[in-house]
Amino acid sequence: MEVVGWILVIACFIISFVGLVYPIIPGVIFLIGGFIVYGLFFSFAELSWWFWATEIIFVVILFVADSVANAFGIKKFGGSSAGMWGSTIGLLIGPFVIPVVGILVGPFLGAVIGELIVERRTFGEAVKSGIGSLIGFLASTLAKAVIQIIMIVVFFIAI
């Protein structure tokens, strides 16, 4: 049963990182799910309230980093809220419409289309916003990956 437990824990952790590339997958839920699976298969005793408090703080930081990085990237490059919404929609749709590269092309095109249609920006301004969206997405993904790694390290330290 121990092997099955560890396979499920590790699978949850891997799926949480897949969520970085496919944002429709709630990565943080799978990460926390891995901790819960460990508790169910082994013991919750090792996962003290300090562990849970620390992990909750990291979850909050993860959500803040995600929001701030994307918004900062778009705003820094002159984008508007239409660019942010377009980027978010492109992020969700892109990977399914264009497998593999859609995760990068989707937010870029979404921001560009949002700026062109809603804000009536010039093509150059819209592309600049799209580049900001792409940079924000990449920064957000990197920040979330680092935070998730830290959360897993904290888990292994706790057990």
Rank of each mutant, 00 (worst) to 15 (best):
G34S: 13
F35D: 13
A71N: 10
T54R: 03
K75M: 11
W50F: 12
S87G: 14
L47R: 12
S80R: 10
P95W: 10
K75F: 14
I89L: 10
G39Q: 04
A82T: 08
I32C: 05
G33A: 07
V28A: 12
F96Y: 15
G19A: 11
F35L: 07
V59T: 11
G78R: 01
I36E: 05
F96L: 15
V21L: 15
Y22D: 07
G79S: 13
W52C: 11
K76W: 10
V37Y: 05
S43Y: 12
W52H: 13
V60D: 01
S87C: 14
L40T: 07
W52L: 14
I74G: 01
I89H: 03
T88M: 13
A82V: 05
G90A: 02
S81L: 14
Y22N: 07
G39M: 09
A71C: 05
G27N: 04
G27K: 06
F35Y: 15
I89P: 01
I74R: 01
P95N: 14
G94W: 10
I25S: 04
S80Y: 09
G34M: 12
V68L: 11
S67V: 01
L47F: 09
I93Y: 02
F41Y: 15
G94M: 12
I25E: 06
A71Q: 08
W85K: 06
A69I: 02
F51G: 00
G90D: 03
G94L: 05
G90P: 04
S87Q: 04
S67F: 11
F44C: 06
V60N: 00
V28C: 00
G34V: 09
K76Y: 13
I57F: 13
F77P: 00
W49L: 11
F30W: 08
L91C: 10
A82L: 07
F30P: 01
G90L: 02
P95T: 10
T54W: 11
G39P: 06
I24M: 14
L47K: 11
A45Q: 15
G78K: 04
M84G: 14
V21Y: 15
A65M: 08
G79C: 10
F72K: 13
I25T: 00
K75W: 12
V21K: 09
L40V: 06
I32E: 05
L31M: 07
I74W: 00
